[in-house]
Nucleic acid binder design. Sequence first.
DNA 1: AATGAATGAGGCTTCATTCAT
DNA 2: GATGAATGAAGCCTCATTCAT
Lengths: 198, 198, 198, 198
Amino acid sequence: MAKTANKKELILTSAYQVFKENGLEDTRVSQIVKKAGIAQGTFYLYYQSKLDVLPDLAQQIISNYTKYLTEHGDLDAGLDYNLRLAINRIFETNQEDRTIPSIVYAGITRSGDIDKWKVIYRPLYDLVANYLEAAKKKGDIGTDIDADYYSEFIISLIETTARGMILFQRTPEEIKKYKEELASFILNAVSWDPVKVL
Amino acid sequence: MAKTANKKELILTSAYQVFKENGLEDTRVSQIVKKAGIAQGTFYLYYQSKLDVLPDLAQQIISNYTKYLTEHGDLDAGLDYNLRLAINRIFETNQEDRTIPSIVYAGITRSGDIDKWKVIYRPLYDLVANYLEAAKKKGDIGTDIDADYYSEFIISLIETTARGMILFQRTPEEIKKYKEELASFILNAVSWDPVKVL
Amino acid sequence: MAKTANKKELILTSAYQVFKENGLEDTRVSQIVKKAGIAQGTFYLYYQSKLDVLPDLAQQIISNYTKYLTEHGDLDAGLDYNLRLAINRIFETNQEDRTIPSIVYAGITRSGDIDKWKVIYRPLYDLVANYLEAAKKKGDIGTDIDADYYSEFIISLIETTARGMILFQRTPEEIKKYKEELASFILNAVSWDPVKVL
Amino acid sequence: MAKTANKKELILTSAYQVFKENGLEDTRVSQIVKKAGIAQGTFYLYYQSKLDVLPDLAQQIISNYTKYLTEHGDLDAGLDYNLRLAINRIFETNQEDRTIPSIVYAGITRSGDIDKWKVIYRPLYDLVANYLEAAKKKGDIGTDIDADYYSEFIISLIETTARGMILFQRTPEEIKKYKEELASFILNAVSWDPVKVL
DNA sequence: AATGAATGAGGCTTCATTCAT
DNA sequence: GATGAATGAAGCCTCATTCAT
């Protein structure tokens, strides 16, 4: 039934908006259903609790990263370019929507279904791993690094640092500096030679 | 007054235990006071809410890291040695007590008093920055890296990765591998030359 | 229409099973329809609520008593024999299915249609009354007892006592003793002379 | 603290009144606390649910029977007198308050704590057993009857029959007749010789 | 400072019932 | 007749917080 997919979509969209407005803690199921224009009981037809929608939401967020980087990235442009693209995108997204770190972090932490999260992050990890493998072939970075582990470290570090920008309320100037230092740190980590901070 | 300090200590100790047993969400003030053997109202003489005790708890955890590394670290032993010491210590502590990531993260996220956190982490950041500066002087690592930023990245990355070990229930073998890769990643990031994974 | 009778039968059968498993309170219409393999709405085509099926269920239970006693009883065998037969049967049925007292009692208590219950019990009362009348003719029991009242007392007492066996979780030995004492009590009540407990 | 006993007493009193007005099913905890003039949460300091108060209520009801019979009964007056006193009292109490059978029956049925009920009924059983023993000594009734079992049967039968009066909405005339027949049934059951219905 | 009985707001969740298909 | 997604009223119960002692 088309209606079904529709209801779930409605819940997802409105849950995201309410989380954004009120934060995770202060979001009530009643607010979600009100915004979605559905009955209270309908919510429980699709999710068990407000936290239960987090994986689906995170799925969208992470997918958007992957989608954006796939569309705007350029394997030939070098690791440097693609890495900075990723940093910018993740920083900006977090900046625009301060609730994202909560959704993603709290979602992972509280979710009973941890395997879901592996699946969610997989495409993003693979994308970055591809960057690394391409750079290896071009001779830009060390051939002995393990792309699978390093891609995880890279994504984790970018996300964590982006989160810190929000938590500690960094100014735009500070953020700019952090992004540069972060890029240098990561590039150093993978490169044959240390990359100079510009 | 000794009594007063005693009560606060009691709350802290028992709060920690209850958090450990039940997790942050499922901890009730009533459980904390019960375990502490004090009256419900007494809790509010010292803390405003259960979340209000998190900074004090995190303070202890992070201080323990600093203390341990100060005692067991050795500036002359080289960055490699001290870094692996830090990784091991943080991984082990998280492994022994799975509630630590929640305490530290949720503490930061929910705390109204964000400046408190800067103070808490400062000594640990400084310690790692010292390692870097010492390594610079010895000519082990690049002189152009910014020790302040890099120390933050390093600590963040270790903590985030350690947390991942728990969340994704990594086996001891996997954890060992992760620790090695993580050390290599960080050492690469700061060194003149890439460090080979053993 | 055969289909219709079929659905009602399905509901009755599955309702009985669910009551048996979960008890009256904890039974949901959703469970009944699930077990019956029909749609939620279909239930309401035949019954107004879960309590509404109780009279039909009790009807079956009480009819089974009457049927069994009619088939296995023997007017010539004397009151003693038939009474013990009834006690055994009612005790055993209750023992096998602990939900029967609830069905019968709650059915009567909550049912709006009390006349239905008079009809349900009538055949069983009449059967016992027949036993008493036959015994009167044979001179075994007092001619001045009112068979209509006494048959009610007898059935009520057996059912109540049988229910007590379950509630108070009597052991098989205790139950045996209760059955004997109960038979003696009832036989004394109707006989010219007290009947000795064996 | 005197206050404590007070609150529990308040709950008990008002619960009884609300049960009486609305019946067991249609009673809400909110109604009980409103009538008691206490906060909703206070209720749960003393009872886990509305059903949880039933044993305490039944305790009072059964105790009242015992108390009344102890005060108005007369061992020397003979079993006949005391039995009719009990029948009258139980019938009248049930008649005055139609919710009593529900309280007592549902209380037993739903209570998790079945031992509580044994304690509640014990004094009443003992009282009737005493009547029987006294009658034995006077030679009024058979010496071979077991007073413990018979007293249970007698009380059960009176209560069940009294309940039937309400359920089937018997007229005062019918009730009178039932009481007589019931007395005769019970007296026959214990006597050396059948007692004539007057 | 310490106590702990009392408070009461309000979110969660269930589940009988409906009704468009 | 049959379906089952959707409804939404309504009651339970928790639990942080207070305050008289």
